[in-house]
Design a protein around this nucleic acid. Structure first.
Lengths: 192, 192, 192, 192
DNA sequence: TATGAATGAGTCTTCATTCAT
DNA sequence: TATGAATGAAGACTCATTCAT
């Protein structure tokens, strides 16, 4: 998805515009100016505005999910696994703050749009992958009794809230500073 | 703030429109149609679109903060206090889903707008009130060592993430069902 | 016309607004704020916006015409008479710059409006009065042969052009400085 | 400035609308209807309403100034030079009544707008060109002692006042009829 | 594939005016 | 006479999208 160099330039320009002005306030012309592509080119590659947003979103969560899944396969212990959810998340946010901000604020929009089905499919596949790994640990008695719907929220919730604050410039200190503490708290929250 | 009946009608209509169509997709005309007020009346009372959004946001968090502060004054124990953060939040979200959804998704917009300063002042005052109560318990040794910046995120993060999912229709079960479990987890996460 | 103190306050406030913002950019609300009168009061006294403009215009030229006619009756010589046209005009402009600016730029508007007929009647009466005086001097052979339509333009044109420049802030020096020179040139231009 | 055919069509349509309805009463839609261009095209070419007005003004005075300067270069005598100011002005007004009316009534508006600086630069350049020519004659003793600020007003003032009256439909006879008389009077007013 | 002029439906906002008190 | 909330027609302007080259 989005191989050509031109497409990537456009997506990066769009992300920069979204960061600077907000998604709704970003116009096609702003993306044109920043990417150097012509309006015709934008439409040739993406068809319409919404699809630029969706492509950016899907590429972002795809990259994040790939990173997470790659890490999870190797770490077999439950503790390392839970902590990786947190540290992996924080590391990715710190490394890709623009993308993280964009993804954190535009899930609903993409879900409601024409690519919503595609997004749901993706989340299902990714969720199934994660669930499979967790199930192993749960069945091995590594976790306390927590409904499946709650597990991820408990683990990632605090880190996500801090990430939101940090990305919005409301934090006094760098997010990375709390990385290990949040990982430890997450593990303490779910361990048996 | 916003006493007159007409103003309240407009705000309620705006909230309903925002819920139904999203804030950005809601036009002044939609709010007019739903509120029964004339366009002139909308502008007479609020001046412009952004101020309707800001007024709604400030009224929403004001009501929530008042409820929380009212509850906290009476509960003296650290455990009850922490659990109240979670249950109070969940109860309010369940009782005011439209308002909760709106507030959860529009903080950045209001912060960046002309009422941003007012919002920051409010958050500061509310934060100071909460901090004062927590300090008492912290100094009494009720909590484990957690940086101040993290405390609220750790306590409320999981509940907030679940609330987001529930409000977006992504949950299988009612949010209220997890109320006490999340409160217990929050308390376990911060207790000494 | 416009006796009551309130009416005068409104007219003065309107003139100040017109000076500051231009006639077209001045709103009823601006006049309300400046005059201290309520919107209802403005409409009670003047009926509508256009009539405020017309009342101001008519009062302005009325005052100027009265001054000029008063002066002309006493000065019997042709030279003094012609020079009075110029000096009287310049003196009035310097003494009433806001009014002068307003009158200089809004004749067409008032002529085209509902008070146009009244204005034309006024100009006719005033013109007839002036013409009567001039006729005496012309028949006495005081002037060179100049068509009636041109006479006033020749006498007043240079002063009016300079007044426009001065009122627009385009002059380096005070208008009054050229008062006598312009009067002399006017007399030289028309004397036999 | 404004080469493309579409741009010229829009400017001509705007001028016609301004003549017919007045600048302030002319809406973008009226210009659209008369020019045949779409609203989008109007904004594509000019950006906003004010810039249409300014473009028209600058083009108008540019054309007039070019004509005048072209004529002045050839006429070496002081008398011919002064008379050319008047006859050139009247000829241009008679040949371009719409443009003349527009320019006569909108200098202040353009000066106060975003193109004000550009206009001032133009006037300075044109004024310097005229001044250079006049200086030669003044130094040769062709003129009576008149301050520089007054010279142009004295020469052109009567013609301009008559042009205003004629353009407003207040004259009984064609302006051209007074062309030579006004030129002679102008020369008599400034000759040594 | 690339370009950018042209389109026009859709928004927000303004402001003169009315009218019940 | 005075008040000011309410009205809504009207206007400027934006911007996603199309299409001929």
């Amino acid at each position: 998805m989005a191989r050509s160099a031109r497409k990537q330039e456009i997506l990066q320009a769009a992300l920069a515009c979204f960061t600077e002005s907000g998604v709704d306030a970003t116009t096609i012309e702003m993306i044109r100016d920043r990417s150097g592509a012509s309006i015709g080119s934008l439409y040739h590659h993406f068809g319409n505005r919404e699809r630029i947003i969706a492509a950016l979103y899907l590429e972002g969560i795809g990259e994040y999910a790939a990173l997470l899944e790659a890490g999870l396969l190797d770490s077999l212990e439950a503790e390392a696994c839970v902590k990786l959810f947190v540290t992996g998340y924080i590391d990715w946010v710190v490394a890709n703050p623009e993308w993280a901000r964009f993804i954190l604020h535009n899930r609903g929009r993409v879900e409601a749009g024409e690519m919503g089905e595609r997004l749901r499919e993706f989340n299902q596949a990714h969720g199934a992958c994660i669930a499979a790994i967790l199930r192993r640990h749960r069945e091995a008695g590594a976790f306390k009794a927590i409904p499946g719907e709650c597990f991820v929220s408990v683990v990632i919730g605090p880190a996500q809230d801090m990430a939101r604050n940090w990305l919005a410039g409301r934090s006094k200190r760098p997010l990375a500073e709390y990385r290990d503490l949040l990982a430890q708290i997450a593990w303490d929250s779910v361990r048996a």
